[in-house]
């Protein structure tokens, strides 16, 4: 045993004792992974609790204190759903498209959301926005977004020359088209209407209504569970179409199933709080850096926890430092972007 320990110290890479194909070969890497996971979980818990109890004006333990806690818990739950949806969807999407720099927003979810909001305020004035709030409208937006995505997949992936890259390209074009229509309509708005609209187009946690949660939670959990059950197949999908087929998976079917699940997750998140694309991209990239493995069963939990830490951290800073609660996408893009660049430049690879 003594010789073995010195041997480990002497050589840069520890010698194998047991030959294993585990996702995290070697005890050192396994330990590092679990430390990262536990660290993220503790950080997530800390931010979650801080958000609920920090700066609570009522004395601890009184009825008022608990009422404020209950109110704030809603926001924490919303953040959990958004982090979960964005992280799971982006990781899975990057895997099935075998591309680490795209995000599901390429399929036009967010442009559609922006177009619906802009269209409503343009056609109906400021009252239009209030008409877009409410449980049926929330469901309607999700159905619209998922519908668009599924129609696109069904049309483009079922044909003989069905091609993922064509699908992505058409997604970009639809997104750009909807985006320019929205920009045009926004030019025609009055300044006060435009001001109202802008507030809606930043990803904002507080804009989520508690009434939406009974719909959003099962949708996110259900789609997430189905993705999790496919985690091992996702590992194969990441190797591309030919290898996937060679290893006996029906590539097209897997692709469509995963893309539909991604659509459900993205639509839920976007309808709940608005555009939050950068979060997904940031979280997916950081998760691969933190987890340092290809295995989705290891990457996905890290991604979800990272997402929640980033989101709740940004919310905490916004609320308690800048007193601009809700609008978290600004700070995520600022701080997250810098973090992202630092991590990538230090490691030198995606």
């Amino acid at each position: 045993m003594a010789e073995l320990t010195t041997a480990v110290r002497a050589t840069p890479t520890p010698p194998r004792t047991v030959r294993t194909s585990a996702a995290l070969p070697g005890t050192r890497r396994a330990r590092r992974y679990w430390l990262v996971l536990i660290g993220l979980a503790l950080l997530a818990a800390a931010f979650g609790i801080a958000l609920v109890v920090w700066d609570n004006p009522m004395p601890v333990g009184t009825a008022g204190f608990w009422r404020i806690v209950a109110l704030r818990s809603k926001n924490v739950l919303v953040m959990l759903i958004v982090a979960f949806c964005q992280a799971m969807a982006t990781v899975a999407f990057q895997t099935v498209t075998t591309n680490r720099i795209v995000t599901p927003s390429i399929l036009g979810f967010e442009s559609l959301y922006v177009a619906v909001q802009t269209g409503a305020i343009y056609l109906l004035g400021a009252t239009g926005l209030t008409m877009l709030t409410g449980v049926p409208q929330f469901i309607g937006q999700i159905v619209l977004m998922v519908g668009l995505a599924v129609a696109l997949y069904g049309w483009l992936l079922s044909g003989k020359h069905g091609n993922l890259h064509v699908l992505l390209l058409i997604g970009i074009i639809i997104g750009a088209g909807l985006g320019s229509v929205s920009t045009f309509l926004q030019r025609l708005l009055t300044p006060s209407e435009f001001d109202l609209l802008t507030a809606r187009l930043f990803g904002s946690i507080s804009s989520a209504d508690a009434d939406y949660l009974p719909i959003a939670v099962p949708l996110a959990a259900g789609a997430g569970l189905l993705l999790w059950r496919r985690a091992r197949r996702l590992n194969v999908m990441a190797l591309g179409r030919d290898v996937t087929t060679g290893l006996g998976l029906n590539h097209r079917r897997e692709l469509v199933v995963v893309l539909v699940l991604v659509a459900v997750l993205m639509a839920t998140s976007t309808a709940l709080v608005g555009p939050m694309t950068f979060l997904g991209f940031l979280v997916a990239t950081l998760a691969y850096q933190f987890a340092d493995t290809h295995d989705h069963r290891h990457v996905l939990p890290v991604a979800v926890l990272t997402g929640f830490v980033v989101l709740s951290g940004a919310y905490f800073v916004m609320k308690n430092l800048f007193y601009a609660q809700g609008v978290v996408s600004i700070i995520i893009e600022l701080v997250g972007g810098v973090t992202f660049l630092v991590v990538i430049l230090r490691k030198g690879r995606l």
């Binding site: 194909s21 070969p25 290898v243 006996g248 290809h294």
Partner: peptide
């Protein structure tokens, strides 16, 4: 079947790559 061009986005060790060959039998 092995094709000519193989480029993977995932970072795999040799052993992890070879292990994928067992997927049809063990499903991961």
């Amino acid at each position: 079947v092995l094709r000519q061009e193989n480029h993977f986005i995932t970072r795999l060790t040799v052993r992890q790559l070879v292990a994928f060959g067992r997927f049809p039998h063990s499903k991961g």
